[in-house]
Simulated scan of single mutants.
Amino acid sequence: MPSLPRLLPLALLPLLAVAGTASAQTTFDVIGPREYELPVGFEPFNVFVQYATYQDNARVFDADGNRVDGSGSKALTGLSKYVRFWTPESNKKIGVAWEVIVPEVAIRNRRAPEGDRHISGIGDPLTGFAIWYKPSEKATLGFQSFVQIPTGTERVSDTNWKNLSSFFWDWRMGDKFGWTGDAGFVWQSRRDNGIQPGLSLHTNNRFAYRASQRLEPFLALDAEHTESNDGLPTGWAVDAGAGLMVHTFDNQSITLRYSTSLDGKNHSVNDSFNLKYAYVW
């Protein structure tokens, strides 16, 4: 069985931001370095991950790409995730995972009317799978697909179904450098208000350097484009960030990151602090 540090990354499979923050952060921007550095031919194991994000919605990009005042709300979101990993008996050269994710949402806005200044609840849960193989010892290629189910608390649910599908990769460049990333789409059904958001395309990339046994700093680059539909305009954003992955124990890690938007149009400006804790057993 491979060492536990090599099993941690898939525990960090990403997901769409929950209601209240989806327009502020690029799809799947929760991924970290080594996210898809995945093994094959291993014994089944389990992972629990807790994500936390603090987003300041002070600024937005308008239709001309200018930064203007946003809602001023502060969003604190959590994502609790359980993942089961295994290798099929019929083919030990591939890996498979299934996961269940429950979002937690809290939004504060002092400018909002009384009764709307603090909104919180359980967001729309997600479930889905990932499958991958290794074309070489230092490379991983795979595909993942998730369904987001509109059963969250009334005030934080998006009220529609979503499918999030993407290809992902990981490339170990020697002993120190690594590139992990994905590219995919998000399809949404019609919401209760009659509006169906357009198709979103996204890509996420992490470039890391293993400075020591415990510390791995990295740079993040994320991009997203959403098509216009049902009166909603075309929107896009390019985000960048910097972070540090701390390999605390063989079966645990903590990742810290700050992310901000470089450019965009009809999109909230990303201004977020992100925390991720993963535990393998």
Rank of each mutant, 00 (worst) to 15 (best):
residue 3 S to R: 12
residue 8 L to T: 14
residue 8 L to K: 15
residue 10 L to W: 10
residue 10 L to K: 10
residue 11 A to N: 14
residue 20 G to T: 08
residue 21 T to Y: 08
residue 24 A to K: 02
residue 28 F to T: 07
residue 33 P to S: 05
residue 35 E to N: 09
residue 39 P to D: 10
residue 40 V to N: 07
residue 48 F to T: 15
residue 51 Y to W: 08
residue 55 Q to A: 11
residue 57 N to L: 07
residue 59 R to M: 06
residue 63 A to V: 09
residue 71 S to Q: 00
residue 73 S to F: 06
residue 75 A to W: 04
residue 75 A to P: 01
residue 76 L to G: 14
residue 87 T to Q: 13
residue 94 I to E: 09
residue 95 G to L: 12
residue 97 A to G: 15
residue 107 I to H: 11
residue 110 R to N: 05
residue 111 R to D: 04
residue 112 A to Y: 05
residue 115 G to P: 10
residue 116 D to R: 14
residue 122 I to M: 15
residue 131 I to D: 04
residue 131 I to F: 05
residue 136 S to E: 02
residue 145 S to W: 10
residue 149 I to G: 08
residue 151 T to R: 14
residue 152 G to H: 13
residue 156 V to T: 10
residue 160 N to V: 07
residue 171 W to P: 03
residue 173 M to T: 01
residue 175 D to N: 12
residue 176 K to S: 10
residue 183 A to L: 03
residue 184 G to H: 04
residue 196 Q to N: 01
residue 205 N to I: 00
residue 205 N to Y: 00
residue 208 A to G: 08
residue 213 Q to L: 13
residue 216 E to F: 09
residue 217 P to G: 08
residue 219 L to E: 05
residue 225 H to N: 07
residue 225 H to Y: 11
residue 226 T to C: 01
residue 229 N to A: 06
residue 231 G to N: 02
residue 232 L to W: 01
residue 232 L to D: 03
residue 233 P to G: 01
residue 237 A to E: 02
residue 239 D to A: 01
residue 246 V to P: 14
residue 248 T to F: 09
residue 250 D to C: 06
residue 251 N to W: 10
residue 257 R to S: 07
residue 258 Y to C: 11
residue 258 Y to Q: 09
residue 261 S to N: 03
residue 261 S to H: 02
residue 264 G to F: 01
residue 264 G to R: 02
residue 266 N to A: 04
residue 267 H to M: 06
residue 270 N to V: 03
residue 270 N to G: 02
residue 270 N to E: 08
residue 273 F to C: 09
residue 274 N to M: 09
residue 275 L to F: 15
residue 277 Y to N: 03
residue 278 A to P: 15
residue 279 Y to T: 14
